[in-house]
Design a protein around this nucleic acid. Structure first.
Length: 635
DNA sequence: ACTATGGATCTTTTT
DNA sequence: GATCCATAGT
């Protein structure tokens, strides 16, 4: 285990060598955070800490996977790995073990966002509540946000002072009842129930003792519940190490509170504070530009991120005519670099919203440039896969109404909406619907009997076979039938990776779109949110328009926290680049009715545009270019 | 009673 | 483009 400090700078070394007591590591973008964390874990193990008594929490499954690989490399193959995963993933593991103490069934299922939406929609319909269209969109997130603040349905009702919130309270309450009856937890419940579990003194003691050392990555993105979980887990020895960067806090909309990181020293008196301010990733022009952007934020801590990498190409800020020209511009640059030997995996295109990917896809397809889109629709969210998952859920949790509604008439068995309503009302079924329902239940019973003795793969295979699901997919006139069949086959393969059906279903729900494997040599397209923690040689940040980035939703509220979070988001995007950064904006797009919409350049770019006036800029770090491109290319 | 089709409407970010 | 709803067809 020699050389654990090799290749680390003095601050990183201090972080790795400080093994006891609370530590706050303020790690700027590209400052070697993961390296520091993995070396610290290796050092703990080298000092005799049992690896299984280390808890390491990351923000994404991908980050956890990377940390596992890098830790394993440092400590060798033979040692068991520490407890590593996301808050949600670890909650799932722990609730499967001890969840009964808070009244959970042994094999609860997990609702993803889709399942939740469906249940909420059904409740609204069943109760005949009237919501406007825009309210309808908000109900879901309002309920989720209440749960993220640990507010129960009853408490929500008590605070409800408008007609809207009173109706939401009603939906909220029924949602919780139905969800529990269905034997399901949603994402928020995983955290809430973990916290509730830690309120049982004996169980809390068990885990406080078990986890001798706790490390938490991306601490600025923890929410109130996660914070409370951490507080409950840390024992008298206070071996808690958190890493984060308030400049990269981009999840306040989901209840994250970067005050958590600013308050760390108050919460854990005497904490060692280590600042990692040297950036090893980006060139000076990139870092200078990113710093200029973030300095506009009023609400932030002071720090100086610097790089020894003084040279570097200027960043390019480019204004193009429309989104098609934007895609064309990016494709031109990449093709040109490709001719000089660059490989596609060195490029990334980052946008504010998933919907912006389309023009890029079109141009890349046309020019036969390989690309991969991360995010947007997840593999497991595709209809054909979700249908199968609904069946599997019903094997484990027979009362789950959400999965029942989804599965009962796929393939069509003559059990439509009306029959489903009758069924739930307990009415007698006859005719086509009755027969279909019987068939459906017999199939489930037959498969359910096999669950204890069969592998997930066998069950899934038999299900697909019995449903004649592949034939069903092929028989529908659907251009994508082939792709759907392939997806189902891939899903069956996937089932082969798991020991039990519980396990399989649990990990499916927690698997994020951004976790999908890197794959072969292709350009990466993803949202800025998904890009956090990643890096590429050349990065294109596109759509820097007011109303898009920042989104109109925060502009409506005026300058403030919303706009500052969007600006931090841009900071994250810019600091993903190692060598070359392009920022593009477009002048117009097509409105819904086909009329052109003019888009202002993003206000975030103003500090970059003033480079001629501001003489402190040391020269040619930023190139500003107005693409004179075609006036009208059919877009 | 169920299904297929056409048209209108809206689109932030994710564990 | 996807999703929701009304209407016509099976």
């Amino acid at each position: 285990m020699k050389g654990i400090l090799e290749g680390l700078n003095p601050e990183q070394q201090r972080a790795v060598e400080t093994l006891e007591g609370p530590i706050l590591i303020l790690a700027g973008a590209g400052s070697g955070k993961t390296k520091t964390l993995t070396h610290r874990i290796a050092n703990l193990i080298a000092h005799g800490v049992d690896s299984r008594r280390i808890l390491a929490v990351t923000f994404t499954n991908k980050a956890a996977a990377e940390m596992k690989v890098r830790t394993q490399k440092l400590v060798g193959e033979s040692l068991p790995l520490p407890f590593m995963g996301t808050f949600h993933g670890i909650a799932l593991k722990i609730l499967r073990i001890d969840g009964e103490a808070v009244g959970l069934a042994k094999n609860f299922i997990i609702y993803d966002a889709d399942d939740r939406r469906l249940l909420i929609k059904n409740i609204i319909k069943a109760q005949g509540l009237e919501f406007s269209r825009s309210q309808l969109r908000d109900v879901e997130s309002d309920i989720s946000s209440a749960k993220n603040y640990n507010i129960s349905a009853d408490e929500y009702l008590a605070q409800a002072n408008t007609a809207y919130t009173q109706k939401v309270a009603q939906v909220f309450r029924t949602y919780e009842e139905e969800r529990q009856k269905n034997g399901a937890l949603d994402f928020d419940d995983l955290l809430l129930d973990w916290l509730r579990l830690l309120e049982c003194p004996d169980i809390r003691e068990k885990y406080r003792e078990k986890f001798e050392h706790i490390l938490i990555d991306e601490y600025q993105d923890t929410n109130k519940i996660q914070y409370q979980i951490v507080r409950k887990l840390v024992n008298e020895r206070r071996n808690i190490c958190v890493v984060g960067d308030d400049w990269q806090s981009i999840y306040a909309w989901r209840g994250a509170d970067y005050q958590n990181i600013l308050n760390f020293e108050r919460d854990f008196k005497g904490a060692a504070v280590i600042k990692l301010e040297q950036n090893y990733r980006s060139t000076k022009p990139i870092l200078d530009a990113a710093n200029k952007v973030i300095k506009e934020n009023v609400n932030r801590t002071e720090k100086t991120i610097w790089t020894a990498n003084e040279s570097g190409m200027p960043i390019e800020v480019v204004r193009v005519y429309n989104q098609f020209e934007e895609a064309r511009f990016v494709a031109d640059k990449i093709e040109y670099a490709g001719m000089h030997g660059a490989s596609y995996s060195e490029f990334a295109i980052l946008y504010r919203t998933n919907a912006q990917s389309l023009p890029f896809e079109k141009v890349f397809l046309q020019r036969q440039i390989p690309y991969k889109i991360i995010g947007g629709q997840r593999f497991y969210d595709r209809a054909e896969v979700k249908d199968i998952i609904a069946y599997l859920n019903l094997l484990i949790s027979p009362n789950d109404s959400v999965s029942f509604i989804r599965a009962v008439n796929v393939p069509a068995r003559g059990v439509g909406e009306k029959s489903v309503a009758k069924y739930f009302a307990g009415e007698e079924m006859r005719g086509k619907a009755g027969k279909g329902l019987l068939e459906f239940q017999e199939l489930l019973a037959e498969l359910r009997a096999k669950v204890p003795t069969s592998t997930p793969r066998e069950i899934t295979e038999e299900l697909v076979e019995k449903l004649q699901y592949l034939d069903y997919l092929k028989s529908r006139k659907d251009e994508r039938a082939d792709a759907r069949v392939a997806n189902v086959k891939a899903f069956v393969e996937e089932a082969g990776e798991y020991e039990s059906l519980d396990d399989f279903l649990g990990s499916l729900a927690l698997f994020a779109s951004s976790d999908e494997s890197a794959g072969d040599d292709a350009i990466t397209l993803m949202t800025v949110h998904s890009a956090k923690g990643l890096e590429w040689d050349e990065v294109f940040v596109v759509g820097l328009n007011d109303g898009i980035f920042p989104t109109y939703r925060v502009l409506e509220q005026g300058e403030g926290e919303g706009v500052e979070e969007e600006r931090r988001l841009l900071y994250v995007a810019m600091t993903r680049a190692r060598n070359k950064l392009y920022i593009t904006s477009f002048e117009r797009s097509m409105g819904r009715d086909g009329s052109p919409v003019v888009h202002e350049e993003s206000r975030f770019l103003r500090p970059l545009m003033c480079s001629e006036i501001d003489n402190s800029m040391s020269g040619d770090e930023i190139e500003i270019c107005y693409d004179e491109g075609m006036e009208d290319s059919g877009w």
